[in-house]
Amino acid sequence: MKKIFILLAVIPYMLLAASGTGEIDIIERTINFVIFFALIYYFAADKIKAIFADRREEIASSLAKIQEKLQASKKEKQKTLKDLEEAKRVASEIIETAHKETYVIAQKIEETTRIELEGLVKQFNESMAFERRRIEKSVINEVLEEVLYKDSIALSKEVLAQSLLKKAV
């Protein structure tokens, strides 16, 4: 292939030398350009190809790194979404448990309050009964003192019993 370029570079000079016409500037410039391009290609083609091959490999490796980062980002996103769903599920379970506990605590408070109220009512009723008995005793004692210890009034046992019964009721 290199021999073909050399041959192509030399043929125009041979043709010009054979024709003998002189002063055509465009042909000479074209021939010079072709020779220059052939020399550049001959000496620098491998290096230019290597530069472009290296650049192609660099771009491919950069693209591969970007693809890897993209895949890692997608995996991280999926993991984060799973974690978010798990957190939502745990939060809903916590809320549900809190509602259940609140209901249970409210039931316990209602039951405790009901029991305390029943105890207070029972205590009040017992206190009322005790006070009633105490007042009845004091009234009976007062009547008895009045009747028994006063000498001025003489009553029969029947009148005394009836008056006691009236005062007690």
Score class of each variant (00 low, 15 high):
E158S: 05
A50Q: 13
D83H: 10
V34T: 12
I31A: 15
V104I: 11
D25A: 08
L120H: 02
F130S: 13
A91G: 10
D54G: 06
D151C: 04
I135H: 05
E68L: 11
T112D: 11
K157D: 12
I48L: 07
P12T: 07
L144S: 11
R55K: 03
I6F: 09
A154I: 10
I94W: 10
L164Q: 02
F5Y: 06
H99E: 12
I11T: 12
K74I: 15
K88C: 01
E146H: 10
N32Q: 11
L63F: 11
E116H: 09
S127W: 04
A44S: 14
T30D: 07
R133N: 11
L39S: 04
K108F: 00
I59S: 03
I48E: 04
A168S: 13
A64D: 14
L117Y: 02
Y41H: 03
F130R: 05
K47F: 00
E76L: 11
V143H: 07
E145S: 10
I48C: 03
L148R: 12
K47A: 03
N141M: 06
L8V: 10
I51A: 13
K2V: 12
E57Y: 05
L165V: 09
V143K: 08
Q107H: 07
E28N: 14
A60S: 08
V139D: 09
L160V: 08
L164Y: 05
S73H: 00
I66G: 00
A18S: 14
E93G: 03
M1G: 08
S61C: 00
K74T: 09
A38W: 02
I27D: 05
V104D: 03
A60H: 10
I153Q: 13
F43E: 00
H99C: 03
L7F: 09
L8Y: 02
I135L: 07
I35W: 04
K3W: 07
V139Q: 06
L8I: 11
D25E: 09
L16M: 15
E118I: 00
L15N: 14
K3R: 12
N141C: 02
S127L: 04
Q107G: 01
K166C: 09
E145K: 11
G22N: 09
N125P: 00
Q107L: 07
L160D: 05
E23M: 15
L165D: 04
N125L: 02
K167F: 15
T30Y: 01
I6T: 06
S61A: 04
S127V: 00
I35Y: 02
S92E: 13
F130C: 05
Y42F: 12
T102F: 03
F36K: 13
T112H: 15
N32D: 12
E93N: 06
E58R: 09
E110T: 00
F5N: 02
K157Y: 01
L148Q: 07
